[in-house]
Design a protein around this nucleic acid. Structure first.
Length: 579
RNA sequence: GCCCCCUUAGCUCAAUUGGCAGAGCAACUGACUCUUAAUCAGUAGGUCGUUGGUUCGACUCCAACAGGGGGCACCA
């Protein structure tokens, strides 16, 4: 930090972060219109002033409101797991175990708010008893349990005067703190009076139950570890505005129900994929993200520039061509899991940057990759603790392997009601759907029909196999039928999740296909831009191989029940916020 | 790029036909040592996204702009 680089004895006021000449460059303009005025309205500055006042009081007490290292705390999840150690100690010294408790949740008919009550099930078949009544029957005594230390953010607070209940939350769970004025002592109580919702606190205390049964840390001492200067969102609803949820993801993670869990599941899925590939003998690499030719997919790239080389560059749209160069180089099983960038539309299924897995296996083919795909998905589901039947929206997706395998033509016949071998009938159907088939390759026309009529009906998971060769320029053809490419796409809920080929390794054919693509289509629509360096690599001999691409974000959507890709990307692209 | 919808207190949401801008949570003051979406009494908090227009009068009607959401197109 900058503070550490200052000479001893020098202090840096937070109001003087800019050097003097920088401050002169940005004189404060007098606000003229509402648009220019800072939206520091009375209400929010008033709320912050209250917290700044508490900050000042803490400093006057000699307490650092920004805390520091806090060793030896237990995760709250680990603490709640020790609930069984909490016992009721009667006056004669005998200990009573706490029987199994059941949480009764209801709605207050007056306020419509949730109510909770802990009930004791003493014996099977008998009506449960309120915990409070169960305790009363035990007579005089107290609960006792282990001494624990925890830390977390204050998410709920109930002030009873000389008694304060705080719910604190860390990333493993939530627990109630019981804080009594007489129990913590007057000095600590003064400090506790400066705690607000949203602050991060540490606690030392004893794990016990309250008379209503709630497992709680009975605080001996509270520590302020970080003061929060801004009030948190509404305690029950959290943030609902999708814009705020994305711009202030930290609040969404803290207060949004299931949000943190969803992103941790994303991490687990990615870890699982790496594990599956590693166990299958794959080697992870990092290819370049700055490409001089944006190849490997049909997409418009982001354009950038390198100053010293004075060179136009593109952010990569795919991982493919460099991974294949590595196949040539002898990396027999190789993969990359990383970001690609496509300068295209934004939708609930599209973000301009997204995470892609591409894996290549020498001496395999597209069927090899089909098996691998199934394993990747099944193991990812296991990693998140899920079952093979996953709920997504109002539907259930059954991931029990093997996934269905259907040919492209079969599906066209089934869903579009057209004979896929009859080019005239296919063209007629395409016209009916608003496509002008004239001058287009018959397979392009057929693919339009597929996209319009078939894709959205593929609830899946289903492997669509055997695509028309002419729409797959990087794919090897079937030996017995050169019209068909050895390719599959995995569809789930109408979304393309994975795409795999038996990779084309004939350099002459590859070069020819690059040229035909370039001749027939505008540059930005071209599947493959001529990449002579890649063709040169192929000339040295790329082993026959299977290649697989998986859209990780979409897979995570399906496995975590997210309706939008922006729910599984921590910081999706947004327009810059106006000041 | 095109079409539709949304934007009201820090947060979540109301506001009748164009006629004084409302509630809950959060905050503040007070009461309460076993509460749990605590409760009770009181207080404060608003340029109704922005800029124009229509009107005696606009949160409300119209236009433009900004941000967001959905759909189409593009794509995965």
């Amino acid at each position: 930090m900058r503070r550490n680089s200052l000479p001893p004895g020098t202090t840096l006021s937070p109001h003087c972060r800019l050097k003097p000449h920088e401050r002169l460059k940005t004189p404060m303009a007098e606000p003229k219109t509402n648009a220019e005025r800072q939206p520091e309205d009375a209400s929010s500055s008033q709320l912050e002033a209250v917290r700044r006042d508490k900050l000042r009081r803490l400093r006057e007490m000699g307490v650092d409101p920004w805390g520091g290292r806090f060793d030896d705390r237990l995760l709250i999840g680990a603490i709640t797991a020790r609930a069984g150690e909490v016992k009721f100690q009667q006056e004669d010294g005998s200990q009573v175990e706490v029987p199994p408790l059941v949480k009764h949740e209801g709605l207050d008919p007056k306020t419509g708010r949730a109510t909770t009550q802990w009930m004791v099930e003493e014996a099977a078949g008998e009506a449960p008893v309120a915990f409070r009544d169960w305790v009363t029957k035990l007579g005089a005594g107290e609960f006792h349990g282990p001494k624990v230390r925890a830390a977390g953010r204050v998410v709920l607070q109930r002030d009873k005067g000389k008694l304060l209940f705080l719910d604190i939350q860390d990333w493993s769970g939530r627990i109630q703190l019981f804080v009594g004025r007489d129990q913590v002592g007057p000095e600590n109580w003064e400090l506790i009076r400066c705690i607000d919702l949203g602050d991060i606190v540490g606690v030392d205390g004893e794990l016990r139950r309250t008379r209503l049964g709630e497992l709680s840390i009975f605080a001996d001492r509270l520590h302020i570890l970080t003061k929060s200067m801004v009030p948190p969102p509404e305690k029950h609803h959290g943030l609902t505005d999708p814009e705020l949820r994305q711009r202030m993801r930290y609040l969404d993670l803290t207060y949004g129900e299931g949000v943190l869990e969803r992103f941790r599941n994303r991490t687990k899925i990615v870890e699982s994929i790496r594990g599956t590939l590693s166990r299958a003998g794959f080697c992870e690499v990092e290819g370049p993200t700055l490409h001089s030719i944006a190849g490997g997919a049909a997409a418009r790239p982001f354009i950038t520039h390198h100053n010293t080389l004075d060179m136009q560059l593109f952010l990569r749209i795919a991982l493919e061509l460099h991974l294949k160069r590595l196949l040539v180089g002898g990396m027999e099983r190789v993969y990359e899991l990383g970001r690609v960038y496509r300068n295209e539309g934004i939708s609930p299924r599209h973000n301009p940057e997204f995470t892609m897995l591409e894996a290549y296996q020498a001496f395999g083919d597209y069927r090899t990759m089909m098996d691998l795909t199934e394993r990747l998905i099944v193991e990812a589901i296991e990693a998140t603790g899920g079952k093979s039947r996953v709920t997504w929206g109002d539907a259930v997706i059954d991931f029990t392997p093997p996934f269905a395998r259907r040919t492209y033509d079969e599906l066209i016949a089934e869903h579009a009601g057209v004979d896929p071998r009859d080019a005239v009938a296919v063209a007629a159907e395409a016209s009916r759907l608003g496509f002008v088939p004239a001058g287009k390759h018959p397979d392009v026309v057929k693919n339009f029909v597929f996209e319009q009529r078939v894709e959205e009906r593929l609830q899946g998971p289903v492997f669509v196999i055997d695509y028309p060769a002419s729409i797959c320029p990087l794919t090897k053809r079937k030996r017995e039928n050169p019209e068909i490419a050895e390719r599959f796409e995995l569809y789930i809920r109408g979304m393309e999740i994975a795409n795999a080929y038996t990779e084309l390794n004939d350099p002459d054919l590859q070069e020819e296909l690059f040229k035909t693509q370039l001749a027939g289509l505008p540059e930005e629509d071209s599947m493959a831009r001529m990449d002579t360096d890649f063709v040169r690599a192929l000339r040295h001999g790329m082993p026959p191989a299977g290649g697989l691409g998986v859209g990780i974000d979409r897979l995570v959507m399906l496995l975590t029940g997210a309706p939008s890709i922006r729910d599984v990307i921590l910081f999706p692209l947004l327009r810059t916020e106006i000041a």
